[in-house]
């Protein structure tokens, strides 16, 4: 199905872009405030096309992210799977939320995401600064309505059917 393939290609591009943005070098002063692009993109796609992208996509992206960031293999995968599971579980509700409530949901999901990462670091005995860990949450919450609105618009304009 041509439309399906178009969606898939668009989704693949957004996934690759999210990974690239995650490792893009930033000035040291704002590097700590880098939004968590990969969970945001995964939340977007599991809201827009829950029958197409789900836990396995999150797992795969997580493994790629683990390789990129040199984390334990499975660390980001687990955190992303948890986030996507909750998104899928409540996707019908989340989709009708107003913007501010949606932002709060994103913050909650990403707090959980960071917490899982943090917890695994702790169990594996890796040292992590505690304060900086939570800085990306704010940035992610701020960009989340933008990214979702923009992507949704783009998807509609491009006549991508899901």
């Amino acid at each position: 199905m041509a439309e399906g393939r178009l969606t898939l290609r668009f989704a693949l591009i957004t996934f690759v872009v999210a990974l690239a943005l995650t490792i893009m070098p930033l000035p040291a002063s704002i590097a700590a405030f880098r939004p968590e692009w990969v969970p945001l993109i995964l939340i977007f796609w599991s809201l827009m096309a829950p029958e197409r992208f789900g836990l396995l996509t999150a797992f795969g992206m997580g493994l790629l992210l683990d390789t990129l960031s040199g984390a334990l293999l499975g660390q980001h995968a687990l955190a992303l799977v948890v986030v996507v599971y909750l998104t899928l579980r409540f996707h019908l509700r989340i989709r009708v939320f107003p913007v501010w409530q949606f932002g709060m949901t994103i913050v909650l999901l990403l707090t959980l995401y960071e917490f899982v990462l943090f917890w695994i670091d702790g169990v594996a005995g890796r040292t992590v600064p505690i304060v900086e860990r939570w800085a990306p949450l704010l940035a992610s919450a701020l960009v989340s309505p933008l990214i979702l609105g923009y992507l949704d618009q783009f998807r509609r304009d491009a006549q991508v059917r899901v």
Partner: peptide
């Protein structure tokens, strides 16, 4: 998938 991730991490 959680079980798989956890075992990956342990390994």
């Amino acid at each position: 998938i959680c079980i798989v991730s956890l075992s990956l991490m342990v390994l």
